[in-house]
Design a protein around this nucleic acid. Structure first.
Length: 846
RNA sequence: GCCGGAGUGGCGGAACGGCAGACGCGGCCGACUUAAAAUCGGCUGCCCGCAAGGGCGUGCAGGUUCGAGUCCUGCCUUCGGCACCA
């Protein structure tokens, strides 16, 4: 122990994290403590991964909040003898870099690399176990080259295709992201021009091919809410596609097919009108001359709306009659054709049959526009009920009514029978529709992976040959202050000879969605510098899938769905042999600014970890972030309480280095019987070990810290007593340091080294120690305290040996004077005895 | 609006359907100090009461149960996602 003389008192050296932490970080680097040997197969492997950060300009405490508990978990696994791989990298492509470039004329690469450099330093200062030799930076050609290579394989396999689709468009700045469209009037973020829709030829990836497989979560342990969200996002609906035809009238001959998708073909006889999406291909043809002006106005208006607005069920329904009718195939009835924005072109066939009696939206629409409502399903004896809303209940006695020869059938019977009948002459077929859409993969942006295709006048779309990869993103870029993709004007980049015919051709100037990078990066971590292929197959076979993935729940449906899709696609290409990327997933919450909003520079609510580390040290901040609350919850940042965690580490310092000191006041525990006190301390220490172990395993880091605080407080109160420094004390201190090591790596290493020195033992890092085991006999309950309730209210407590027979416990409970008083002398009507938990005497009659 | 979370003291939060409020912050009181800071300790959900004690309490309204913060139904508020933010 290091002491400094001060008169006749000895004063304990102060805990000074700023002195300790950099020293140990340097030492760990020196001895390669966190270098993972991927070829070491002597121990079980454990691939622990946290979602890599986007190196935005807003470097904040949120990054620590994400990484710290995962780092502690990686260390916890390492102490269990596993060969742990816990890599880190940077998701370098993205819109903020481009926004900064447009606004301030900085090159996106310079902006990004500066931020990365800053974040690297911060991650090092927190003492994370990352093995930096495996770092990935996605804007580096040695990474994105393989995005291109994989894309070409997808293209060959028919998983990538081109199709026209609408984008939000500014005449000055080109395609806009949703966040670049501002205000209710939807204007451009940069120039303020009104935003239009424009159809562009775009690249898609065929995610829908895997829709059914993505609904299957067998073999992965993911949180139920995430699986639910993905299931709803895929939105599988079974039903039928039914062919309506257009009826002839003055302005058109009729006879065009109008295909609708419906989940309720049993209600076909109740279809009283049709609704097309305003973008539907037949709208122009079907519109009557007298209605054209109104229809055109409506189509324009709908194109300016967002999908969220269009699907909102609480706003007033709008729509326009086209002045044309359709023929219902089941009964030959003419029904009017409308367009309305609540029907989306991209879902199903972009057209619906409206059955107002049995669909809420159709009901609202019919009521608003005075369209007929015909009930075709009713419970027994309710045919004539006037509906005051859509009837969508399912009761056992409901039957089809008003449905010709199908009347009397149940809904499921009617569904099958009607579809089978129409299918005979091709007017219907069973069909499945998904809400999930193919992945719109191309971006009209500079800062992303160039899509490796060439457009040749003669040969059409020509893939860039593998040997010509990577297609490098030009290093210099001139935005000219505008938002439009500068690659569109970069002739040096665009001009290329066709690899097939040698003739003049042009490169694709669109780049890939940045989600491509995170769709397979965990494979690349295993061999980030490999230059003859995207992945190292033997390492991938041995190390993946990832054992534990952690990251924000905001990625529930996009990143976490894309990465599952990508893994399955790579499997089908024969590149990997696995179905799922991440075996176990934990979603942590998001840390917000003090104002409850997302942290960002522009809001001015960013908390920089550097300031906190300078003041308290990394261990305190790490521990505080874990102690704040349940990790899956997140919440607004508040520094209130950091002091408490700092005090906790100070107490740890004190109990380890100065067990005999006595600055305790009146709270010191009396130790009249040192043997009993030592035994009690052992029990407390071992139970803490059991509970803390469970907390690490279940991601309950906040209660883990709380339990270590309790143990430390206990030691503090035994300080200076007869048992301080004894065997039980020494064991408790040893367990405390080992349990705390994954969470607070620096102070525990320092104290551990001092213990070794004091015992004249050679130094060995605490982070190479094994996780301790608790003694079952110490952990077992010897006596239990049982609350005794009368009618659910606690009236007394019994302290009895744990193995007291039930009858004896009940006898003792009844014998209590307080219980008798509460019962009013009466015998209880019922005795509920939950062994080990409580006794409840029910006095009143039930 | 739709999909998924979350609502518990003054604050962050704890609690296999079984003693609501662990642990920490803040507050009050005490020890140490000439004093303050730091440190150590005690008390601290609300209401009534000198006290013993009693009553009320987990967003709101119901329900199931011997027993509900926990399960069910319907609401309210708030956070995340809604396909070009990552």
């Amino acid at each position: 122990m290091t002491v400094t003389g001060s008169g006749d008192r000895t004063r304990l050296e102060r805990f000074d994290p700023t002195a300790i932490e950099p020293r140990w970080q340097a030492r760990w680097d020196e001895i390669g403590l966190y270098e993972t040997d991927l070829d070491d197969q002597s121990r079980p492997k454990s691939y622990i991964l946290t979602m890599y950060p986007y190196p935005s300009g807003d470097l904040h405490i949120g990054h620590w909040y994400i990484v710290t508990p995962t780092d502690a978990l990686a260390r916890f696994h390492r102490m269990h003898g596993e060969n742990v791989f816990f890599p880190i990298g940077f998701d370098a492509y993205g819109l903020p870099a481009e926004n900064a470039a447009i606004k301030n004329g900085i090159n996106p690469r310079d902006w990004t690399m500066q931020n990365i450099e800053h974040e690297r330093r911060q991650f090092r200062s927190m003492g994370a176990v990352f093995d930096w030799r495996y770092e990935i930076v996605t804007c580096d050609p040695e990474f994105y080259r393989w995005n291109q290579w994989l894309f070409l394989r997808f293209l060959e396999a028919g998983l990538a295709y081109r199709r026209m689709s609408p984008v939000d468009w500014c005449p000055n700045d080109g395609t806009l992201a949703r966040e670049q469209v501002e205000g209710a009037d939807r204007h451009c973020w940069r120039c303020g021009a009104p935003v239009e829709k424009r159809d562009l030829e775009q690249w898609y990836l065929r995610t829908t091919k895997y829709a059914d497989e993505l609904l299957d979560f067998t073999g992965i342990e993911w949180p139920e809410p995430i699986r639910l969200q993905q299931t709803n996002w895929i939105g599988r609906s079974e039903g039928a596609e039914v062919v309506f035809t257009t009826a002839p009238d003055d302005h058109q001959a009729g006879g065009d097919e109008l295909r609708v998708f419906t989940t309720r073909p049993d209600t076909l006889f109740g279809a009283t009108f049709m609704v097309l999406a305003p973008e539907h291909a037949l709208v122009a043809k079907l519109t009557a001359p007298g209605r054209r002006a109104e229809v055109d106005r409506y189509v324009t208006r709908a194109s300016a709306e967002t999908e969220i607005e269009r699907l909102s069920t609480d706003r007033e329904k709008t729509g326009v009659y086209l002045g044309a009718d359709a023929i219902n195939p089941v009964n030959g009835e003419r029904i009017p054709i409308w367009i309305a924005d609540y029907v989306l072109a991209g879902y199903g066939t972009g057209a619906i049959m409206a059955v107002p009696a049995h669909d809420e939206r159709d009901y609202t629409f019919a009521t608003r526009f005075g369209l007929p409502i015909r009930r075709v399903i009713a419970p027994a004896g309710a045919d004539d009920d006037a509906l005051d809303g859509a009837y969508i209940a399912h009761t056992p006695d409901e039957r089809l009514v008003n449905s010709g020869r199908f009347s009397g059938l149940t809904a499921p019977e009617g569904m099958r029978a009607i579809v089978a009948w129409l299918a005979e002459d091709g007017r219907a077929k069973p069909s499945v529709t998904y809400r999930l859409r193919d992945w719109l993969f191309s971006r009209q942006r500079y800062w992303g992976t160039p899509i490796p295709v060439i457009y040749c006048e003669r040969d059409g779309i020509v893939p860039v040959p593998d040997e010509d990869l990577p297609v490098r993103l030009p290093e210099t870029v001139d935005y000219g202050g505008r938002g439009e993709n500068p690659l569109n004007h970069d002739e040096a980049f665009l001009r290329i000879d066709c690899p097939r015919c040698g003739g003049p051709a042009r490169r694709e100037s669109d780049t890939m969605d940045t989600f491509v990078d995170s769709s397979w990066y965990w494979f690349r971590y295993l061999s980030p510098r490999k230059d003859d292929g995207p992945i190292d197959r033997p390492l991938v076979d041995r190390w993946t899938p990832v054992d534990q993935y952690t990251g924000g729940a905001e990625h529930a449906v996009m990143h976490l769905m894309y990465s599952r899709f990508w893994t399955k696609a790579m499997r089908d290409l024969g590149l990997v042999d696995q179905d799922e990327p991440f075996k176990r997933l934990f979603n942590q919450g998001q840390i917000l600014g003090a104002d409850g909003e997302r942290m960002s520079k522009s809001r001015g609510n960013v908390q920089d970890p550097d300031d906190l580390v300078a003041r308290y040290g990394a261990d305190t901040i790490r521990l505080f972030l874990m102690f704040m609350g349940p990790w899956d919850q997140g919440g607004p940042w508040s520094p209130t309480g950091i002091g408490g965690v700092a005090r906790f580490l100070n107490r740890v310092w004190t109990v380890v280095l100065d067990p005999h000191g006595s600055d305790a006041g009146s709270g010191a525990l009396p130790v009249s019987d040192p043997v009993a006190a030592a035994a009690e301390l052992r029990v407390v220490a071992h139970r803490t070990l059991r509970d803390v172990t469970a907390d690490y395993e279940s991601f309950h880091f906040n209660t883990m810290v709380a339990k270590l605080m309790e143990l430390t407080n206990r030691l503090m109160r035994f300080r200076g007593t007869a048992i301080a420094g004894g065997d039980a004390w020494d064991e408790a201190v040893r367990l405390l340091l080992l349990m705390l090591a994954p969470a607070a790596p620096h102070i525990t290493e320092e104290l551990w080294s001092r213990r070794l020195a004091a015992a004249s033992e050679a130094w060995r890092s605490i982070h190479r120690e094994s996780w301790p085991a608790w003694e079952a006999a110490l952990v077992a309950e010897q006596t239990v305290e049982l609350p005794v309730q009368v009618d659910g209210k606690v009236r007394d407590r019994l302290t009895v040996p744990a193995d007291t027979p039930a009858a004896e416990v009940e006898r003792l409970a009844l014998a209590s004077a307080k219980v008798q008083a509460a019962l009013g002398g009466k015998a209880p009507a019922k005795v509920i005895h939950v062994p080990g938990r409580l006794v409840n005497l029910v006095g009143r009659a039930p």
